[in-house]
Amino acid sequence: MFGYLLRRVISGILVLLAVSFVLFTVFAKGPAQPALAYCSKGVCTAEQLDIIERNLGLDQPLLQQYGTYIKGVVAGREINSGTLSLDCNVPCLGYSFKKFEMVTPFLLDRFPATLSIALGASVVFLTVGVAVGVISARNRGKPLDRGLQGFTMLATAIPYYLVALLAFLFLVSKWGLFPTTEYVAPFAESFSGWFKGMLLAWLVLGLFYTTAYVRYSRGSMVEALNEDYVRTARAKGLTDRRVALKHALRAALVPVVTIFGLDFATILAGTIFTERIFNIQGIGLEALQSIGQQDLPVISATVLIAATFVVVSNIVVDVAYAALDPRVRL
């Protein structure tokens, strides 16, 4: 177990190094001249550009720049820019000259909002999705199942941003059925404010993912219900309910957990539409804005964070697998 984890963590770090290096190279060699972004109104003389590049360390060889960046992530570094000299603490993801802020604390500040969205939406789509999937599978072929499947199909066909936008416009703005969406810190400020502010985002994002989870869990539940061991369980004289919820569901959950791990990581990395439409200051919104402003340190940081979540969730999923299935040994 320990050896396995160590191996996975090391390979995960290698993946992240590769991602960051590719990212770094693309930005450095790409058409966007990073220094240009720091000129007032995007116009600089060649001399001004030189100065900015020297200040940013962009005149150094690529590998050296990358080394400095990685050192910052691991050990922190000092950022010098002309007259400015700042301590960038571990994990240092750079300094945004657009926002005049350190990237790490800036994103950390935005993270709770995104985490809130991810947690709440997951609760919604896991409970509703799996429950509906199980109901659908247990009634497979019957009108109820067909109706549920038709509905999820329909729901999947509508673009998410449209659903979110309409929900916001009608439920909040027009009818006022839901409170205005916003992020309120649950512990520092108000728990009920947090809940109210997030509720619509949770429901809309949650229900959007629900359609997919109905399909996954229905599929794997139907498969599990056809397993020999389910027939054995029935032959013992157990109730259908117990057979479905203990024997079949336990097996059906395993593939769902795998997909959930990746979905959760993706949501954590920022839900751009959700944050934009419901006006929640999360990582996704920052990523969107930084792209608009060509704020390269912030863009790289968000990409790196997303990759980290995917790597970590993969490891977590594997551990969960071993916990669910006694045949799997790590």
């Binding site: 020999d228 061991y229 027939r231 054995t232 013992k236 336990r250 097996a251 299935d325 006694p326």
Partner: peptide, 30 residues
């Protein structure tokens, strides 16, 4: 009646036993 007065033994014990539960649990469940 099932598993009580009348019980059944299936062909392939590998697929007929649930892989996630212990042998003891599966025996006692009935």
């Amino acid at each position: 009646l099932r598993g009580n007065a009348v019980s059944m033994i299936f062909q392939d014990p590998l697929t007929a036993l649930h892989p996630f539960f212990t042998i003891g649990d599966q025996i006692v469940e009935g």
